[in-house]
C-alpha cells in the first residue's frame, strides 16, 4: 500500500477583523451589546414611567387647555383621596383581588396535584391547566357574559330546569361579583396550577417515599413535606397573581364595563375612565402612581416574607 501523500490542504487565511469592535475592552463591548436592549427598555418602560410620575404632579387636563400644565404639587393625590370613586375602586380592587387570588390557589393547586398523578384524570387535568390559560381574557369574559345572560344564558337555563328562579347575574351587584370571581378564578387557576406543577416535578420522589415509610398520612405528607418544598414555586405564583389582580381591567370591563352600579369598577377601569371619559391626564397619572406604589409595596412585603420564612 502506497503511503498516502500529504494532501494539499488549502489554508484559508482569515483576515483580521476590520470591525473596530475587536479592539474594544470587555466593558466597552458589553456596553455596545447592551445598548439596543437598554434603549428599547428605556423607551418603552422608563420613559412612560417617568412621564406618568411627571404628569401626576402637574395639571394636565385636555378639556381645559387654558390652564396650561403648571406644577400642581400633591393636589392630584389629595383630590384623588377625597373622591369616593377612588375609594370605591380601591376597595373593589383589594377585596376582589383577595377573593380571586385565594380562589385561584384553591382551585389551581388540586388541579396540579391531579395532573402530576399518573392516572386516568391526568390528561384531563393537563387540558384543564392549559385551556383557560391560553384563552385571551376578553374572549373568556365575553364567553361567560353569554353564559350568565339573564335571558339566553346557560346558567339560568340550568336553574329553571331545576325549578329554581332565574337570576339577573350581571345586573345585580352581588351576583355580578360572584360571576366575576367565577370567570377570573377559571381563567387564572391555570397559571397557579402550571407553576405548581413545575414545582411538583422538581420534588424528589424519595423524600415523599421516606415520609410514607415513616408512617405519614397522605394529608400529613402533603401539608408537612410537599407544601414546604413547593413554597418557592407558590410564592412566585402568589406575587404574579397578586400583581395581575391589582391591575385587573380586561375581565371586569368586558363582563359588565365595571358595573352594575360600579360593583366591578377596579382601579384599572377608573384609570381608563379618567383618561378616556374625563381626559384628565394629571388625575389618571396620580391613580397610576398609586397603583404602582401599591404593587411595589405588596411585592416588597411578599419578598421579605418569603425570605424570612
Amino acid at each position: 500500500m502506497e503511503p498516502q501523500k500529504n494532501p494539499q490542504v488549502a489554508v484559508v487565511q482569515i483576515p483580521p477583523p476590520r470591525f473596530k469592535g475587536g479592539d474594544l475592552s470587555d466593558n466597552a463591548l458589553a456596553f455596545w451589546l447592551m445598548l439596543p436592549a437598554a434603549l428599547l427598555l428605556g423607551g418603552l418602560f422608563l420613559y412612560p414611567l417617568v412621564t406618568v410620575f411627571w404628569s401626576s404632579f402637574h395639571v394636565q387636563k385636555l378639556l381645559e387647555p387654558g390652564l396650561g400644565e403648571p406644577f400642581n404639587g400633591i393636589k392630584n393625590f389629595v383630590e384623588m383621596v377625597g373622591d369616593f370613586r377612588f375609594r370605591g375602586a380601591l376597595w373593589n380592587t383589594l377585596y376582589l383581588g383577595v377573593l380571586t387570588v385565594a380562589g385561584s390557589f384553591l382551585v389551581g393547586i388540586p388541579i396540579a396535584l391531579i395532573a402530576n398523578q399518573p392516572g386516568r384524570f391526568r390528561a384531563l387535568a393537563r387540558v384543564a391547566l392549559l385551556l383557560p390559560w391560553a384563552m385571551p381574557p376578553v374572549f373568556s369574559a365575553l364567553m361567560f357574559a353569554w353564559m350568565f345572560n339573564g335571558d339566553y344564558g346557560v346558567f339560568n337555563a340550568w336553574l329553571t330546569s331545576l325549578g329554581l328562579e332565574a337570576k339577573r347575574w350581571l345586573v345585580t351587584p352581588s351576583l355580578a361579583v360572584f360571576a366575576f370571581c367565577v370567570v377570573t378564578i377559571w381563567k387564572t387557576s391555570s397559571f397557579v396550577g402550571l407553576l405548581t406543577l413545575s414545582g411538583l416535578q422538581g420534588v424528589p420522589k424519595d423524600i415523599l417515599e421516606a415520609a410514607e415509610v415513616d408512617g405519614a398520612s397522605k394529608w400529613q405528607s402533603f401539608w408537612r413535606v410537599l407544601l414546604p418544598l413547593l413554597a418557592p414555586a407558590l410564592s412566585v405564583a402568589l406575587i404574579f397573581r397578586t400583581l395581575s389582580a391589582l391591575q385587573v381591567f380586561d375581565i371586569p370591563y368586558a363582563l359588565t364595563s365595571g358595573g352594575p352600579d360600579r360593583a366591578l369598577e377596579t382601579l384599572g377601569i377608573l384609570i381608563y375612565r379618567t383618561i378616556f371619559e374625563s381626559y384628565d391626564f394629571g388625575a389618571s397619572s396620580a391613580l397610576c402612581v398609586t397603583l404602582f406604589a401599591l404593587g411595589l409595596a405588596i411585592t416588597f412585603f411578599y419578598v421579605r416574607f418569603v425570605r424570612g420564612d
Partner: peptide, 23 residues
C-alpha cells in the same frame, strides 16, 4: 357638556341600578 362621557356614565349606571331593582 364638555364632560359628556362622564355625565352619561353616571346617568346610565344609576338608571340601570333602579331598573335592575338594586336601588
Amino acid at each position: 357638556s364638555a364632560n359628556y362621557p362622564k355625565v352619561s356614565e353616571i346617568i346610565r349606571t344609576k338608571v340601570n341600578a333602579a331598573v335592575a331593582g338594586a336601588k
